[in-house]
Design a binder for these strands. Structure first.
Lengths: 151, 151
DNA sequence: ATGTAATACTTAGCTTACGAGGCTTTTGCA
DNA sequence: TGCAAAAGCCTCGTAAGCTAAGTATTACAT
């Protein structure tokens, strides 16, 4: 490992981890500005996006799809329930499970909020070709897999 | 906007923002496992990485380079100082400024910790060509710029 | 020289996230 | 059948991040 190589790792701009972090914050903040007037926080959005496509899943499954731990999910889902976006129902066949269901109000939000995330994504990807964007998504899916797979 | 296009935005895997978030967590967690035995948290690491290259900067400049707000920086730098990694000195020429300087101990950590972040990056980028990795870094720098620029 | 604006850091309060460990229910097997 | 293990959710403590508003110092225009 030469000194030059080491320097590359010290300059954050060369690190995918650093870029992931600042982009995560930037995406969140941009989205928040658009959706908060509708009473939805960025954290709540992450759950809603999954629920619009997969309503009636268990809490564990929802957390898995959102990409957070169950400990974090408990708080997030409580916040959704408090805001009147979801209902929590104990599964009758397996009383350990809690089924998360969207309220009618939360379902009506889909049509309003989706264009906003479309806008944020389009703004972010301005000046980037479809081919490049596809590479980015594929590579980031792979780095995540590489870092989280066993051993 | 067709229904098919909308679905793409609902499936998290197609969203750069989602991928950025899960990768940020994955990078942090992987790095944490390696550096915590040396008494360094992932949060502290972010500051140290900058300081190893730019020792003696002001608090504001350090925060800018780390990519966080100054409010967040106050806590992080306090934690570094409590752990004995940095010293905070008021600038004699401008008493508003606080200069952050590494302690000798923190400087010795560089040689131990850099190989660890190298390892995490190499593991993350396994099976990805240099060309693809370059595209990812360039695109993520651009999306960040696009989302944070004035307009 | 002085009052206003800008700069640099801090505080308070909130959100989102994690790990470790605990509780209840279900499952599987001796 | 009965009991240990697994599954599913929750609590607690802590970290890291943000915005908004506050304090102290310096710069600048008049």
């Amino acid at each position: 490992m030469t000194k030059k190589n080491l320097i590359e790792y010290l300059e954050p701009i060369h690190s995918v981890g650093y870029l992931a972090r600042i982009n995560f914050r930037a995406f969140s903040k941009a989205l928040e500005k658009l959706i908060e007037p509708h009473g939805v926080s960025a954290g709540q959005w992450r759950f809603l996006r999954v629920l619009w496509e997969h309503d009636g899943v268990t809490q564990r499954e929802l957390c898995r799809k959102v990409g957070i731990t169950e400990a974090t999910g408990v708080k997030g889902i409580a916040s959704l329930a408090a805001a009147g976006f979801v209902k929590r129902t104990i599964d009758t066949r397996d009383k350990r499970k809690i089924i998360i269901t969207l309220t009618p109000h939360a379902r009506t939000l889909e049509a309003k909020l989706i264009p906003m995330v479309v806008e944020v994504n389009e703004r972010a990807l301005e000046g980037i070709t479809k081919k490049e964007a596809d590479i980015v998504r594929r590579v980031l899916a792979k780095t995540y897999f590489n870092l989280t797979k066993e051993n």
